[in-house]
Structures are given as structure tokens and as C-alpha cells.
């Protein structure tokens, strides 16, 4: 009787233009609960714009964005977060004058009113991401890789169903990338956290994602497993002139 449950995230025919420029033009994909999906494409392909439309920063000019069958369109960023979507920013936005721990506490306060609970959750997340020994430092004193980590920690602390990661591995050393990949895999395995990531670091994409969606110039190119995608001539085409995969 009941149809198959809706996917965790459904994106269909998403369109956004800025002053006549079609930044995103008919992007569709779906993400099932528990999946890790990478969104890749050359610079300016419209990846971050897709994220911003999911997260409520921009309202799409057309198309659907649904979380568990419920439309996210028209919601403000804070409402999208409360609906269960955590996100990081490509250009990190730490609360510079607050301590690292306080930054994460703000995230945890999404689901609790109790500071002690929020603090406990914050410490747990900071442990997980290896920031525990820096928790009392002001966030502005962190290095860029640590700031990226903090972005992730804050978003994780909100206990999202879906985590949107916008280039969190960029600028990390290979060892750090591997550690972060391992963290996400563990989270995914142990808590069933669903992740959509925008990433240029192919090492991370290959290791982490179960499925890859490729877009270029705002349009969908192809979709498949990481192995399929890197062999796809259309994908190589759109990266021509870019650095090799």
C-alpha cells in the first residue's frame, strides 16, 4: 500500500540564475539515508550555489529540494538547519572571539537548551575531530586546517541528518585528509550520518564517496560510482584545461 519512502534528499530540476547567468540549470540527484555522495565539477560549475539553495541561502528559480519528502524551498537557513541539515562554509566563518569549544556549543544548542549537555556534546565532537586540546583557544587563533575542522565540528554538533561539506579538505595535508576521511567514514558507519560533499581533493572523493554527481556550467554531466565517473570521457572533457584528476 505505502509507496517506497522518499529519499533523504531529493533535488530535481534545480535552476538558479544571477542577472541572466544560469548558475545552476536543471540539476537533479537524490541521496538515500546513510549514503555519502560527492558533488564535483570544475570551478564555477555551480556546486556551492546548489548547496546554498539546499541550505536556504538562495531561493531557487525553479525545481524541487526535499528532505524526507518535505520541501525545503522558502525556508530560511536557520529553519533548514532545524529541519536536520548541517553545513560548512567554503570560506570558513568561525566565531572568532569565542573559544573553539564555545563555537561548537552554539551548534549543540540547536537541539538542547542545557548548557551542560551542549558542552558535553561539544567536547565529544572536538575529541572526534582532534581539536580537544585547542578547545580553550579563541577560534581566531586557529590555523586554516583547524578552522575547517571547526566548521565541521560545529555542523556536526547540531546532530544533522544530512551534512553538507563544502571543500573541507582543501588546504589539508594528505595525512590530515586521510584522518578526516576516516572520521567521516566512522560517523557514517556508526551513526548512519548522510553526507553530501563538494570536493576538489580527488583522494578524498575516491576514498569517501559511494556515489559521485558531476556538474559543469550549472548542468548535470553524469552520475555514478567514483570509479565509473573518473573513467567517463564526458567528465574528462569538462575538466580539460583544469588540473588532471
Amino acid at each position: 500500500m505505502s509507496p517506497s519512502p522518499p529519499p533523504l534528499l531529493l533535488i530535481e530540476g534545480l535552476v538558479k540564475h544571477f542577472r541572466g547567468l544560469r548558475a545552476v540549470d536543471g540539476v537533479s540527484f537524490r541521496v538515500e539515508a546513510g549514503e555519502i555522495v560527492a558533488l564535483i565539477g570544475p570551478n564555477g560549475a555551480g556546486k556551492t550555489t546548489v548547496f546554498n539553495m539546499i541550505a536556504g541561502v538562495f531561493e531557487p528559480d525553479g525545481g524541487r529540494v526535499e528532505l524526507e519528502g518535505r520541501s525545503l524551498i522558502g525556508l530560511r537557513p536557520d529553519q533548514v538547519c532545524r529541519a536536520g541539515v548541517g553545513r560548512t562554509f567554503q570560506l570558513v566563518k568561525p566565531f572568532g572571539n569565542l573559544s573553539v569549544e564555545e563555537n561548537v556549543v552554539v551548534g549543540a544548542l540547536r537541539w538542547t537548551h542545557e548548557i551542560t549537555k551542549a558542552r558535553a556534546q561539544a567536547r565529544e565532537v572536538l575529541d572526534l575531530l582532534g581539536l580537544a586540546d585547542k578547545r580553550r583557544q579563541p577560534a581566531r587563533s586557529l590555523t586554516l586546517p583547524d578552522r575547517k575542522c571547526l566548521e565541521v565540528a560545529r555542523a556536526l554538533a547540531t546532530k544533522p541528518k544530512l551534512l553538507l561539506l563544502d571543500e573541507v579538505m582543501a588546504g589539508l595535508r594528505p595525512a590530515e585528509t586521510d584522518r578526516m576521511v576516516e572520521t567521516f567514514r566512522r560517523l557514517n558507519r556508526e551513526t548512519g550520518l548522510t553526507i553530501v560533499l563538494i570536493e576538489h581533493v580527488m583522494r578524498a572523493v575516491m576514498a569517501l564517496s559511494q556515489r559521485v554527481v558531476v556538474i559543469n556550467s550549472g548542468q548535470p554531466v553524469c552520475e555514478g560510482t567514483p570509479e565509473e565517473v573518473v573513467r567517463d570521457p564526458r567528465v574528462l572533457d569538462c575538466y580539460l584545461g583544469e588540473e588532471p584528476l
Partner: peptide, 9 residues
Amino acid sequence: EDQDAAAAL
């Protein structure tokens, strides 16, 4: 500190 980040949380 940052309104966009606050909203995202």
C-alpha cells in the same frame, strides 16, 4: 560574531 554562520547553526 557571524550572522551567516549563526543562521547555518
